[in-house]
Each structure stands twice: as C-alpha cells, then as structure tokens.
Nucleic acid binder design. Sequence first.
DNA 1: CAAAAATCTGTAACCGGTTACATATAAAGA
DNA 2: TCTTTATATGTAACCGGTTACAGATTTTTG
Lengths: 325, 325
Amino acid sequence: MTTIKDVANKANVSVATVSRVLNQRGYVSEDALSKVLQAIKELDYQPNSVARTLYNKTSNMIGLIVPDIQNPFFPELARAVEDVANIYGYTVVLCNSDQDEKKEREYVDALKQKYIDGLIMSTHHQQENVYSAANIPVVALDRVGDERLPAVVSNNYNGGWKAAEYLVERGATRLAHIRGPRGITSSEERYNGFMAYIKNQGLDCVIEECPFQLNPAEELAERFYAAHPHIDGVFASNDVVAAGFLKVALKQKIPVPDRLQLIGFDGIAFGHMMYPELTTVAQPIYEMGALASRLCIKLIEGRQTEQLTNQLPVQIQLGGTTRGA
Amino acid sequence: MTTIKDVANKANVSVATVSRVLNQRGYVSEDALSKVLQAIKELDYQPNSVARTLYNKTSNMIGLIVPDIQNPFFPELARAVEDVANIYGYTVVLCNSDQDEKKEREYVDALKQKYIDGLIMSTHHQQENVYSAANIPVVALDRVGDERLPAVVSNNYNGGWKAAEYLVERGATRLAHIRGPRGITSSEERYNGFMAYIKNQGLDCVIEECPFQLNPAEELAERFYAAHPHIDGVFASNDVVAAGFLKVALKQKIPVPDRLQLIGFDGIAFGHMMYPELTTVAQPIYEMGALASRLCIKLIEGRQTEQLTNQLPVQIQLGGTTRGA
DNA sequence: CAAAAATCTGTAACCGGTTACATATAAAGA
DNA sequence: TCTTTATATGTAACCGGTTACAGATTTTTG
C-alpha cells in the first residue's frame, strides 16, 4: 500500500507538503503542487482513512440502529439514509438492535469507539445514556425515545385521525382499531389520533392490541372476526398487521371492501404486491430517512437545526381494501 | 476519553504492560495484572479500536455489498450476515450497489481503505479487480460473478427443475417460465433447470423475460395472460415477479390455482402475507447469509475452506397458488 | 554455585496520517 | 535599503494503540 511517505519521496518534498496538498490547507507552491499531484497520480495513492480518523477523531461514518431490517418498513428507510450519506461522503454502519436495550448500548459503545461521527436511531428506549455520554449528534428516526433529541417522525396522530375519518366517510359505522404495542410513540400517536376522531364524532369502537408482526396479527384476526362479526371498518396500526387481517378476511371469504373495509399504516412496498392492494396511511418513508440523514450530517458539521422535531405529513394511499368515495 | 496511557499511569506500569494485559500476550506478573485490571475497571477503559486498526491493519469490520436492500430478498440475508458477524465480534458495513459496477468499485476501494477484513458481495459483475487488488477474503453470495471466488448459492438449477416437476405433477400441462434477467447466474440456472425438466419430459413451454421488480411483472402479466390464455402453470424466477402475476390473475378473476397454478422462487417473507399464499421454491435465505458470513470469517482467520462453491438445497414451500397433490 | 533459561518490565519505534512550530525566502511597505 | 509581511517548506510531536528489543530479576539446570 502506498503511503504519504512514498508520495513525498517520489515528489521530493516532505510529508507535510503532501498533506497540505491533500487537505488544501496552508501554503504550497505551484511547483510543489504539480509534483505532488503527479506523484499521487503515478502511485495511485489514496490517503489511509484509518490514520486520518485516528488523528482527526472523525471517521466519516454514521451509525444507523434499527430494530430489525427484516421488518419491511426499515429497508426503505435505511436505503434513504445511505443514499444521502453517500452524497456527503459518509459511510453507513447498519445495526439491528431487536429493540434490546443492552444490544443498543453495546452497538453505541462499539460505534463510538470507531469514532463514528453521528448516530441515527430508531428506538423507543430512553436514550439519555446515548445523549449524555456521546458528544456525537444523535437523531431519532420514526420512534422517539428521548424528547430532547432531534427527531424525524411522521404525523402519526394526524394519520390515525385521517384513517378514522376515511373509514367513516366511506360508510363504515362499526369501527375497530388494532393498535400497536404500548410504549412505542408512533403506535400511541396513531391510537390517539384515531380515538380523537372517534370521540369527536361521538362514535364507538373496538380496540385490540397487536405487535407489528404477521403471525400474531393472523391469530388475532381469526379471533377478532369471530368475536366481532359486525365490525365493518378496521384500522390497523401498521401494514403488516393490516396484511394479516386482510389475509384472514380473504380466507374467510369476508367481502373486502364491501362488508369490511381495511386500512393500514406505513405505505410499505408490499402493499402494492397483493390484491386487493392495501389502502393505507402512507408515511413518506424515503423522505424520512433522507431527512434524518441530512439532519445528522448537518449536526455533524456543527450547524444547528432549526427545530428539534421534524414531523412529516402522511397521506392516504388508495388501495382496494376500502370503497371508493 | 481514557487512553492506555491513563491506565498505565494509574496502575504505575508502562503502556507496554497494559497492552500485554489487554492482548494476553507476553509475560505479566500477577501483581501488575491485578493493578492493571483494577485501573481498567476504575477508569472504565476501552481500547481505541481505530488505533488498533491502524497498527494491526485489521478492523473487525466486514463489508456487505448488495444490489438493493429494498429488494425483499436481501434484508433477511443481511440480517443473517450481521448476526453471525456479531457473534464473532465483527461489525457489518452495508452498501447498496444498484448493480452499478462503478459504485461497486468505489465501495470496495473505500472499504479497503478502512482496512475492512473481508467482503461479502452479491453481484453478477466480474470481480477480478476485487479479487486481484484486494488481498482480503471475498465471498460471493447468491450471485456469482467470478468462478474463482468462494461462493454461497442455493441449488438454483435443481429449484428450476423442481418447479417444473411440481407444476406438472399437479396437473399443469401448458407451462410457462418467466425467467429473470440474463447474465445473473441464479436466473440462468433456474431457467436451465426448468428447461431440463421440460425437455426431459418432452414438453413444450412459453418463455418470457422479466426483471425482478413488481411493475414490469404486472405489465408483463397483463400482456401475457392476454396472449396466452391457455397457459395453466407459471414458474416465475422470483417471488416478486410471481406476486405480480398473482395480483394480475386475481384482478382478472383467473381462478388460482384451479385454472392457473403459480410458483415463485426465493421464499421471502411476504409470500406469507398474501392470500392465497405463494407457492415457491424456497431458498434457505438466512442460512445462506449465515454461511457466507461464517465462511468469510473463516477466511479472515486464515483457515482454508474445503470447497469453493457452497450450494445449499432448495425446498418447495406449499402455498395456495398451486393445487394439492 | 555458576550458567542457562524463563519471567518481567520499560523504552522507543512503528502504523499513516495531521499540524504546530521553526526557518528560509520572496514580496510589500516605510 | 531595511523592516515587515506573505509565502513556502521541513522537522518533529501527536493521535492511541502494538511490539521488537534490551535490561533486570527470578527460576531452573548441570
């Protein structure tokens, strides 16, 4: 591997001069400049980023901690984070925490040791430890654990409200909400928004709780349809759960959307892969990831962010699981 | 941040002794050992991995280059790679290449600069550059670009054969294969396996080609069903394409599986999220990722691998898009 | 009991960069 | 013309570890 010393030798200058050329800092004569550039080209020299990191305490790497990349919501988010990071010359290190606080802490420690420049986290755990111990920028994405952290989220509350409103407007009268796990900000907010509309309209509804996974959703759906045959509008707190409910409904030959309307939340890609397509409250997933990435880099570069919480709008995405207007 | 010097001072020994304790190398007296351990504990010292990397030229990082993490096949693979890597103390850096050779090369360069210890690549490009320039272990995953590279793949040929056989055994007589893009090993092999069975049985079939994406698959399906109304068995080269064909079939009210049987390839999670569930030739995706990761680490640790190509078996996964036996 | 071998420890060089500082020369100002 | 200032460059310390080597002490061996 060619080092800065090799370049210096070849160009007949000192390493300091080469370094000055590389970093475009300090004074370098025309003559030296061209000799160095020539040597760099001839030797196909690339400065060693580890050595740079050691001195500069900055690695051009961003950590991204998600619960599980297998959860179909996160690949798009991760992709967006990486795309933006790349533009600015950053590399992304992806970590799956399984929502395990210990794992999260271990990852954060390991990443900090590698002089990671910033951290983007999707977790509902309190991040005081991260927040205090690290002097690196941390951006919360989708899930907010700590209020003091800059965050990128979608308007979950509004989404919940819209979902309820949408179902009611399409003629649903007996509503149910399959809410997500307690303690996760997004599912709480969706629930709150949904309930606010329900109360506002003086309606009644059935509430069930379900983790954001297919199998539990299917199991719950079986029981649910048996227990509540009259329900004609279901709002699931995420698309995976909605898919589970749709699947069981189709299996049981419950006419969707004629006798049962279904709306999910997220707007992940596979909503389009099924038939009928899932009607859903779509978050701007890619936008969220991209924004978080930009925000993180902005903070790394020392610039302040205007606002702590960045809330992006959601939008109903028409599918075939709800009726036309 | 506490450094090895701080520890040495506190323990009243030299940095060399502390280093010996850390690496459990060389002679260290009982007395010095306990003093150092005590100091480490009191200062909550963690050795700086960047400094270590600089000297050792090894980073405990593995690069994973995939075409696009948004392709639902890759998250499971990536997860497996990361899980195994973690067990052995390695961190994974994920990169999306978009199948762009230039991007791939840039990533490889950047990763090598960071003293990445090994590389796992899912690409169909020739990797001579990688293979020659890098003296780091490279493992090909799912897609093989270079024959000389150790690789982990599933038995795509056998999968293609099995798919044909399965359709025929369930009574399909007019077969079609929607093959994947040319030049990608896996799609070629699936095609070859399928055709081998067809020829072996003296059958005839329709072949179409489609990229591994939903929209093109849907468009093709529309045209396909119009042009070939008599086809009663379709083998799609991957599950996304199969999903597109299923979606259009359902939309057109073509009875599946009674008048049209459908089988995909991959066994990705969303096959279970739809109704009917997708019948598919399932690859052991997680196993493949885990094996690639283990293989890579084995090579990093200097041990030789028994065989260059590791081919894992595929298995038909029963869904509702084919008839019972 | 002396020599050889094993154990212990510190100094300093090294990994490959960056930069403070000293020094030298050229250009500008008095 | 003599300062002063701007330009140019090299030396050496530094980032935080690892390790070759040398010297000192202890243990083993003959």
